[in-house]
Design a protein around this nucleic acid. Structure first.
Lengths: 143, 143
DNA sequence: TTTATAATTAACGTTTACGTAAACTATATG
DNA sequence: CATATAGTTTACGTAAACGTTAATTATAAA
């Protein structure tokens, strides 16, 4: 009994189902160098939990409007040569920048929230005006 | 002296400069029904501060990955017939949904932040390892 | 009033992020 | 082992969100 890859792995469709994306999407991310799953003897992709976590991270970035290019800068290209100092320094540098962006987005998120609340307030105001008019008219009609 | 439109207005390129977008983008948003500026006698677009504010709102939504279609649902189509109860109710309904989304995004934003911080930690770890190795090697070489 | 800028419409082009179909191979199952 | 099911590559298709001419008209400046 060798302990070779004892971690349970997943097929592409298992991942797709779980993350609610298409297999095409997963392969597309691989094409772009964002993930790098292993292969079976028969050349089929196998995903480790680590691969899955990375995909989740990518999807999280997407939900914030980051482009795939930005995301790859953010989390680093597929673990190809993550071992050179220069590469690491670059990633660190980018990470800092992205952290700042996230701070900004947090602020903007609040602004957006305020905008929506303000809009809602106006709408409710208008809504009541209209209802009042309608009520008034109804009363007239009922007299 | 009539008080006709005493508010200072802007040309399309003034708006473009100020909001740092292209005139094409502004016209495109108009095509999609998101804004509805006035026109001069010579058929050129004129933007009121209100129009400008609306554009800012659109851009804010964009920064959060909302599509233009979603944004138009969010802030209501160009003030054409914003006066029917049904329309207002729909907008209110959407507003609530979007507020919830914003709550979710706030949470995810923190998660993304944590991910980046975790990545940074690992990178720094690896960084130090490499530097140590380099130092060790140098010491050997210098002996 | 001429002329340099700026704006308008129309239409085709481009990038991103996948969708979809075809032709083929691997794997699972009765 | 036959065959249904799942996975692979290749390649063309597509929607969204503008970019980029081009041809024409307005407006501002000298």
């Amino acid at each position: 009994m060798s302990d070779e890859k004892n971690v349970h792995t997943f097929t592409i469709s298992q991942i797709a189902d779980e993350l609610d994306i298409s297999t095409r999407t997963i392969r597309f991310y691989e094409e772009k160098g964002l993930i790098k799953p292993g292969r079976t003897a028969g050349n089929q992709r196998i995903y480790t939990p680590r691969n899955k976590a990375r995909l989740k991270l990518i999807l999280r970035g997407k939900r914030f409007g980051f482009s795939l290019d930005e995301i790859s800068e953010m989390i680093g290209m597929a673990d190809t040569d993550m071992d050179e100092l220069a590469q690491i320094e670059k990633s660190l540098y980018f990470g800092e920048a992205k952290l700042k962006e996230i701070q900004d987005r947090k602020k903007e998120l609040s602004l957006l929230e305020q905008d929506i609340l303000a809009t809602r307030k106006k709408l409710l105001q208008r809504f009541r005006e209209l209802k009042h008019t309608a009520t008034t008219n109804n009363k007239k009609e009922n007299m």
